[in-house]
Structures are given as C-alpha cells and as structure tokens.
Design a protein around this nucleic acid. Sequence first.
DNA 1: TCTCCCATGTAATATGTTACATGATTGT
DNA 2: ACAATCATGTAACATATTACATGGGAGA
Lengths: 192, 192
Amino acid sequence: MTTGQVNLRHLILGLLTRKPMSGYDIKRFLKSLGWLMSSPSFGSLYPALHALSQNGLVIEDSVSQQNKRSRKVYSITEAGKKALQECLSWPATPDITLKSFIIQLILANSSPRAGLIAHLQQRRSQVAIHRAALAQMIDAPGKEVNLKEHLALDYGLALAAAELAWLDNTLNRFLQPLSMEVVGGKSTALEV
Amino acid sequence: MTTGQVNLRHLILGLLTRKPMSGYDIKRFLKSLGWLMSSPSFGSLYPALHALSQNGLVIEDSVSQQNKRSRKVYSITEAGKKALQECLSWPATPDITLKSFIIQLILANSSPRAGLIAHLQQRRSQVAIHRAALAQMIDAPGKEVNLKEHLALDYGLALAAAELAWLDNTLNRFLQPLSMEVVGGKSTALEV
DNA sequence: TCTCCCATGTAATATGTTACATGATTGT
DNA sequence: ACAATCATGTAACATATTACATGGGAGA
C-alpha cells in the first residue's frame, strides 16, 4: 500500500470496519450509493480483495452455503485498521477530484467527532486556496483570457464558493452542537 | 481512439487546434492553468503525441534550433479535427468527474455558439438528473442513513444545486445576448 | 559551481475497465 | 423457457504515474 491517492483498497478497508462483507456485498453496497462515485468493477474488486488478503490487512473466511457457491467473507484485521487510519491522515492532493474527499468523508466512521471536524477544516483550507488561485487568474490584467477559459474559471469559482459555503455551514453546525438546527426540512442530530 | 472517456489525447488535439505546439509547450500551458485539472506527466504526454502521430491525427515537424536540442512541433490534421469533433459530440458519462465537462468546455473552441449552448444544456440536464437522485435518497424513509452518509448526500446536493444555478445563469446570459450583464465586476462580452 | 529551465524520451509500476468464463437459484 | 440475481474469478487492454536517462544553455 504505497503512499499516494486514496484508492479502492482503502475504500474496501473502510467498509469492512463496519461489518465483514463479501466482494459481492461490497459491489452491491457501492452500487446502491451510486451518486458520488462510480462503483468499481468486479475486475478490480476481487483482485483488490486478494491483494489486501495477501498483505494481511483483511482475512478471508469461506462460508459455504447449501447448494450454492460458497461466499468469501472478508474481515478487517488490526493491521488493516492501522493502514486505514494512516491513509485517512494523509493530506489530500490539491487537485479537484472531490472523490478523495467524499470517500474519506464516508469512511471517517472510526474517527471521533474531532477527526471529522479536522477533516472538514482541512478541506476548507484547501478549497480556500484553490478559490484564491482562481480569483487571481480571473482578475489577471493581461493574460489574454478568452471566453471559454473565462467561462471555465467562472465555473470553477462558483463551485469553489458553493463548497466553501457548505463547509462553513456544516462546520458551524458541528462547532455549536447545542442549537439543533433544521436543514433541508429534516432535523439533523449531530451525535457521532 | 476507442469510444469512451475524453482523455489526454483529445485534450492535446483540442490544444493543437489553436496553434502548433511541442510536447513541452503543451505541458507548460496545462501547468499554467493548474486550477481545474492536474497537468499530465511527460511519461504520458510524449507517448500520447507519438500515438496521435502514428494514427495520422497530428503531424510532427522537427524544428532544429542553433546549439539546442531540436523541438518537435505538432500540428493537427484534418483527420485529427474530425476525431476531435466526434469526441466532443459524445454524451458525457453520467459520473461526477467534472473533468470531462471542463475539458470539453475549454476545448469547444471550434464549435459555434450554438454548440457551446448545447453543451451547457446537456450538462444541465445531467446535473438535474443527478440532483433529483440525491434528493430522493436523502428523503428516503427507511434506508438507515447514518450521519456520514447524510453529510455526503447533503454535500453532493449543495454542489449540484450550485452547478445548476451557474448553468442556468450562464445559459440565460447566452440566450439573451442583447442585455450585456456584468459578472463578477467584469463586463463579459458574449461573442463566440 | 550549482541550480533552474529547456527538451525529449523509456521502463517499471499502478490502477482500472471491459469482456469473457462458470454455474446455481429464483421469479415470471 | 427465459431472464435476473447471486457469486467468483481471469485475460486483455487502457491509461496514467514515478523514476530514471540524457544533455545544452542561462543566470546567481
């Protein structure tokens, strides 16, 4: 597990901290939340599980079923939990993939409330830097910005601003837990 | 050039419609706009140029310089322009990569104003579908949504809403060209 | 001198997809 | 009878990264 981007194997590790699952279970779960990331193919899922098993980060448990092909249920090991914690503490790469942030957000289940807040704050500072860079480019004097590039910059700025707003809003809710607010018509309890 | 995702080779083709460039030029340019996409490595850039050259989509022109290593300047061919046009008309994959949309937005230089508008509208309908799916999930009755997933959903919704707002705003400006609006303190002429 | 920019390229590696292969069970 | 879902896996391919190799010119 080299240092670098958060990838499928980390995602698997995170899911296995909830409960042991088979490859098919994982696929089904990820497909069920097919909103923010595309679920991986079996061609990457099964090899990933094998690799994790070989590295001792998960253990494989073959569960035979009557008249059915036996399932292979994987559980995370202590080494696996450690590897996951390590990856969750990585500084996210400064690109705009979002994916990494989302995955870490969903996987941050083993972290305490403070870890979640830190994660949001880290993202906030990154997006702030990003927005500042965009703002500087769009205000640059010479620089021959044509319409298409201006459009792309404007787009990037709008999304960055929206993300900052969401992060600020969410952080406020977490930092002031006494006032239970209503968000989107749904009361949201904030216990972690 | 198989059918599928917009990739580095398409990006190169798009840049070469502006003017002939060397690999180093392309790298430098992409690095200079390191806001919305990370610039490719030389390890992918040069092979991509070779592949394009072999397929006849670009032509290579070796320009010798005094006392310096000669540069290889690439120009797009008619076949290359055709391939680019084809890829720009692909329906974007329904994932959230954004990258594809941004690239196409920047590269849509050879398309007339109508093409740009169509591109924005296509994106709009996709994001609308995406947002509807998110909204449905967040309002689902049972479904045991825990805090982390709820947070991720809320995040996705906020970004989708912001993108829709930007798209609507931008489309309005394009569809009503008579009223020159001021955006971000900068007057934006809309001629394409 | 030393470092940075110019300028091209290859090799090893990582990571993923699509398509294929297999086969049982459940619902229509 | 047929399709969908369960369940695992492999092989070929696509695409990209990092690290390495090479070498000249410009400026501190």
